[in-house]
Every structure is written in structure tokens, then in C-alpha cells.
Design a protein around this nucleic acid. Structure first.
Length: 265
DNA sequence: ATGACATAGCCCCTATGA
């Protein structure tokens, strides 16, 4: 089962890219972020024509998350308990094919350490951890993918010196992220490309629109697919697909994906 | 230090992103 996550930066602006990418990559499940439209405007019918059902939590102008699936979608949960930003559309999960629960998350950016949005980002990560812990205890394989807006390690930036001490690179963000990981989650891409003294050039997921960052491969790895232990046992492969970032008028993010072997389960 | 790009909404300027 191929699972991917992609911050599309407006589904209306990126719809042609999405359909083109679905055709060529053939994912089973796609986690979307930054839809930037209300749920009732989501293009369900056009995606059904492509073979994908969708669970959607939309919002006008900002945020918005969704799950696309070729397999049946059941038991959709919108948001999570004790979310400090309940009016913002940042989390959705659903049971896929009766066998794995998959979440799409859009963690707040936080702007900068002086902004009031920054402590809200940290609170969001803490509350998310508590919600994920409950999901893991449910004993159904659980995967959470999305735009975490955190580079967990210095090797998750091409030029870490530029970001030191700033969002999304601060010690407090990383501490929150690490506490989430310590529930027993595994990072799908870092199984394939472990942290070494050399930064892997092909693990970045975001490049600034400005300054020709993509052409210089001056990026960040802030989009992640995290797997609970039961899901990790099914892991076979993972990576990024940067081809959509090369297309005309792209999202600033590119898809991150992993592959699971469902038959061994 | 600043601005560089892009998106949506409302409307030609602001908020937001990372």
C-alpha cells in the first residue's frame, strides 16, 4: 500500500498537478494539507473519477486537510481532543480498508519565536502527542503523515546554519517532536535514509519559492510520515518524489511517500 | 537588515507562509 503526504498549497491552484501526479505515481492513500478551501467546495466528484474517495476537513482561505483513498474509508475523525486551535482545520484521520488508521496533519507554522503563534504551535504538538498516544493504544496500525513544520535534525536542512534558532528549527519544537517520536513512532524516510554525517540531498520536502531555492536544492525536510510499531513492521520502502516541484507553478512542498506490505498482516 | 514568491480575500492592499 503506497501512502503519500503532500502539502499542495491550495487544492484549487494545484488540482491539475494533483491529478497528473495521481496518474503517474498511483498512490493508494494521499494525505493532503493546505487545501485553502471550505469542505463543501472540495472536488469530490472529479477525484472519484480518478478512483479516489476523500475524507475532508476544510476551512476558508487557510489550512485544510484531507485523506484520499482508493480503498474504503471508514470511521472518520475530524480534529483531536484538547486541540488548542480547534477552529483551525489541521487534523483528520480515518480507518482505511479496515486495516490501518491514517492521519493527515498540518502543524502550525508558528511564524517566529516572538510571535503569539509560536507558543500555540508548541501547545498543538503537545496535545497532538496525547491524541496519538491514545490511537497507538487502540492496537490498530496507525500512521500519521503531514506537514509538521519542524526540521527534527540539523541534517534536515541543506543549510542548517541559516535556520539555527529560528522556526522551524528551534530546540523547543524539536523537543515536542521528539516527545511525539518517543511514543514509539518511526520516521518512514529516515529508515530508508538514516541520519549520517552527510546530509542526504534527496530527502528535502520543501523549498522556498524565493531566490531559486529549488534549483539550488536549498530546502528543508519538514513533511514526515510517522508509523507506530505495528505499522513499522509492514514498512518496505520510502522516499520523496520531487517531480511535482519541477512543474510549472508548483506547490513549495513535494510529496513524501512510503510503501507498506499489507499481506504479512 | 531587507526582500525575494505565492495564495486567498476582497479588491490593489493585507494576512499568512517557513
Amino acid at each position: 500500500m503506497k501512502i503519500a503526504t503532500w502539502n499542495v498549497n491550495s487544492i484549487r491552484s494545484r488540482f491539475d498537478h494533483l491529478v497528473k501526479w495521481l496518474h503517474q505515481f498511483q498512490p493508494d492513500v494521499v494525505l493532503l494539507q493546505e487545501l485553502k478551501l471550505m469542505s463543501e467546495l472540495f472536488p469530490h466528484e472529479q477525484l472519484l473519477d480518478e478512483g479516489y474517495q476523500a475524507a475532508v476537513l476544510g476551512q476558508k482561505t487557510y489550512n485544510g486537510v484531507a485523506i484520499l483513498s482508493k480503498h474504503r474509508i471508514e470511521d472518520i475523525t475530524y480534529g483531536f481532543e484538547n486541540n488548542p486551535l480547534p477552529e483551525e482545520a489541521r487534523y483528520i484521520d480515518a480507518l482505511i480498508d479496515g486495516s490501518v488508521r491514517i492521519a493527515s496533519v498540518y502543524v502550525p507554522n508558528g511564524q517566529n519565536t516572538e510571535s503569539p503563534k509560536y507558543p500555540n504551535k508548541l501547545k498543538f504538538i503537545d496535545a497532538l502527542r496525547a491524541a496519538v498516544q491514545i490511537r497507538i493504544y487502540e492496537n490498530t496500525p496507525y500512521i500519521i503523515g503531514g506537514d509538521f513544520n519542524i526540521a527534527p535534525h540539523d541534517l534536515d536542512a541543506t543549510n542548517p546554519d541559516r535556520w539555527k534558532g529560528d522556526v522551524p528549527f528551534t530546540a523547543a519544537e524539536r523537543q515536542g517532536y521528539n516527545q511525539l517520536m518517543h511514543l514509539g513512532l518511526h520516521d518512514a524516510v529516515r529508515i530508508k535514509h538514516p541520519y549520517t554525517s552527510q546530509s542526504a540531498p534527496d530527502v528535502m520536502s520543501w523549498w522556498d519559492y524565493r531566490g531559486g531555492s529549488f534549483e539550488k536544492n536549498d530546502g528543508l525536510r519538514i513533511d514526515h510520515i510517522l508509523m507506530c510499531p505495528l505499522a513499522t513492521d509492514m514498512w518496505t520502502d520510502a522516499g520523496t518524489d520531487r517531480t511535482p516541484r519541477t512543474w510549472e507553478k508548483p506547490s513549495d512542498h513535494t510529496p513524501v511517500w512510503c510503501d507498506l506490505n499489507m499481506t504479512q498482516y
